[in-house]
Write a protein that binds this DNA or RNA. Structure first.
Lengths: 153, 153
DNA sequence: TGTTTAGTTTAGAACGATTCTAATTTATTG
DNA sequence: CAATAAATTAGAATCGTTCTAAACTAAACA
């Protein structure tokens, strides 16, 4: 057993408490991203629970509170690398601030314009009929629906 | 006839070449915005043609090229005031850059992620069939659909 | 293993879009 | 025509984000 595998196994154990977590390692591997302390810690924060929507700033704060030493630059790097590796996806709801969603499956969002709260729409509760053709020389990448709500009163 | 009305009439004539333009003045009036040189010139640029999508920077350049003396700050102010006055609406398609749409009626967008090009979807070719309930304590403000496309090759 | 090499992290500088500030100018009111 | 209220402006400030180049760490290899 190489040192590498040993180390990974240890980190894996520490992070996991036995839950299935290896897919993060796999994704990182496929994306040729080394499983560093920072990446694994952020992955843990992000992917422990199913459905999260964070900004870089938020995640950085959260990491700090959790005692994880990681720079804001690394948080940005990691969010983008994870997005490329399909561990996250970006959601655009506000100009001037990027949100990242831990749910990478096809789904849509409700965005509270007063509070900045962002949440997923269960796939069964929304449906659209999209007929327009993609303009000449383009192909549809994805269709995004944002239901914008306001707080009452 | 007061001086105000005279002045407006003259400006109106200059800007209009006879086309119906008074609704801009009306909207400005209702919004308690004075019909200044800058506002009227920007309104002309924006609302002469039906369907435009601009960023502040773009509009500022365009104004400069057209010989209109207006600061970037005023362009920003004007875009936001016009949006409040329902002469424009904001479209969020990229985090980090705000687009403004001269078409304020209910409709959706196609966004080319490679070129940054944004265009309207004719309302007949898309429709929302099922909508989720707004979360407790909120009400739906609007539903936005963005069809993201990529350039081929 | 120890060394080399290649990838990663970091603090801080730089950046682009936007907002703010306070002084000046312009439009409206009386 | 003066008084006052609103709008414009240049430039500073701010915000989120990206870049840079040096220090560090992981993986490959001798």
């Amino acid at each position: 057993m190489t040192l590498y595998i040993q180390a990974i196994a240890i980190i894996y154990k520490i992070m996991n408490d036995g839950r299935p977590y290896s897919y993060v390692l796999e994704r990182l591997k496929t994306a040729r991203l080394r499983p560093t302390r920072q990446r694994l810690a952020l992955a843990k924060l992000l992917l422990e629970t199913d459905d999260r929507h964070v900004t870089a700033e938020q995640l950085h704060c959260e990491a700090s509170s959790a005692g994880i030493k990681v720079s804001l630059a690394t948080v940005y790097n990691t969010l983008h690398q994870f997005t490329k590796a399909d561990l996250l996806r970006e959601v655009v709801v506000e100009s001037g601030r990027a949100y990242f969603d831990t749910n990478t499956s096809e789904h849509h969002h409700i965005f509270n314009q007063d509070t900045g709260e962002l949440c997923d729409i269960p796939d069964e509760t929304i449906s659209v009929l999209v007929l327009p053709d993609a303009p000449e020389g383009t192909k549809i990448d994805r269709v995004e629906i944002i239901v914008r709500v306001k707080s009452l009163r």
